[in-house]
Design a protein around this nucleic acid. Structure first.
Lengths: 248, 248
DNA sequence: TCACATTTTTAGCGGAGGCTAAAAATAAAG
DNA sequence: CTTTATTTTTAGCCTCCGCTAAAAATGTGA
């Protein structure tokens, strides 16, 4: 009679907490759920809604699986859903998504800054750790980094209470020839591109100037920082920039 | 026709690798599987085998679930199993278990040393991270810590190639009264005990001397380091020590 | 508006890992 | 050597999260 600790129910723990400000203290959800919410969050973008198909493509699952998961998420109040009408995150869902995104980005930053991970390989590691790391751990990492506001790829890091800088940026492809701009951001999902950008020193914060550019993301001639001009290919629509005021 | 990237098979990737030394490069297994292997590893201890019931108690699952999982693990070659006869890890299973244990302990050490986690709360965090962290990440942490050989609770950290110091130690309860000893290790699973030990400064490396002791883990009087003697309760069988040679 | 294309949903299924209740094997006690 | 207790397994079921194939809804071009 030494071991008899069954009682698997776990339904008595969730009392209704504060509710004062934003409902922080939301039960942690499963890994797939976090992935769905993240995907929906950034597919929805400005319009606010995302389509089944887009979510499926993003997560590399069948559309039917998305429908199934979406029904579950809706029944948990994480999103609003109307058949055939697309999906929109609820406030709760948005908060969960943002916290997941925060974890991801803080972890990426930490791995890069503190543990010397190359910026083209942090994504996969962060993708796994974001589901396992507690908010406390992430906050400790953030603190030890001095609460950075963007990750190594220039993506904004949501604050612990769910605020995020949502500014939209231009791509290099949209930039007027000759304008001076600061490299702001690039997706963390394309290791090849990231290695290439590191090679030509085009990283967030660097000043660039487009000297010439072919349409449809064709060859582009860039002056990166003060170095010799380089000719790049296939990066114009990937790299986000922000014009820089010439102080005359 | 923009999105059509199904092809979910992922079975072409696993060619047979080196096989030279120990079969490192073993496919990563699921979280429950890692937990079972860890549990079996340290329940088996010296005898080499573990019982269904013990595993069930350790993992807080029903015995029937253990039988089910054990069959799966056996069919994957991670352990040897004979109905009603208990279970023994295969070499592969042992390696997987040790790598998981290494991840756990390195992570605990890192959280404590670098991120300031209190030693009574690292266990839970490590328990989750150990399944998500890559061996590369763990090796980077280990390197940045100077490749420690034991974690904050004194547990030995297996090396990256699966060697671990398996020395057995005495408990405080077994120590002759008056003998001077060094505190070596305590379980990481009991936060209350850990807080208490921290309070009386009884941490790995500290010298202790048992001044008096009641049987059956009753009250014990200890001299910890050079401080005033303290009377403790319920820790004698938990705290592992190693006698210290008086250099006369 | 009708016909066809596309998107989304439903129906039905599978595997991993849980569970309980009952049966079977092993171990312990008389 | 039985009888009883304990341990382990089997049987049958459940949930989560995938899948495919087929049906239904929506959208589009003529």
């Amino acid at each position: 009679m030494a071991a008899s600790a069954k009682k698997a129910s776990s339904s008595k723990k969730t009392a209704a907490p504060s509710k004062t400000t934003a409902n922080l203290a939301i039960d942690r959800v499963s890994e797939p759920v976090e992935d769905y919410l993240k995907a929906i969050y950034d597919l929805a973008g400005k319009s606010g809604t995302a389509s089944t198909n887009d979510v499926a493509a993003r997560l590399n699952v069948a559309a039917a699986s998305v429908t199934g998961m979406i029904r579950r998420l809706a029944s948990q109040g994480l999103l609003e859903y109307e058949r055939y009408r697309g999906v929109r995150l609820s406030e709760t869902g948005r908060v969960v998504a943002l916290r997941t995104i925060r974890r991801h980005r803080v972890i990426e930053t930490y791995l890069t800054e503190v543990l010397g991970y190359p910026w083209d390989r942090v994504h996969d590691e962060a993708e796994r750790l974001e589901h396992a790391a507690s908010d406390e751990l992430v906050d400790r990492m953030a603190t030890s980094l001095g609460n950075p506001t963007s990750d190594p790829h220039g993506a904004p890091i949501p604050t612990a209470d769910g605020q995020m800088d949502e500014r939209r940026h231009q791509t290099l492809a949209e930039l007027d020839i000759g304008t001076r701009a600061r490299m702001v951001r690039v997706s963390d999902k394309n290791p090849g591109l990231l290695r290439y950008l590191a090679e030509i020193d085009l990283t967030p914060g660097t000043e660039v100037q487009v000297l010439a550019r072919a349409p449809f993301d064709g060859p582009i001639t860039l002056q990166v920082g003060d170095t010799e001009p380089v000719v790049g290919q296939g990066l114009a629509v990937q790299v986000l920039v922000e014009e820089v005021q010439d102080e005359t």
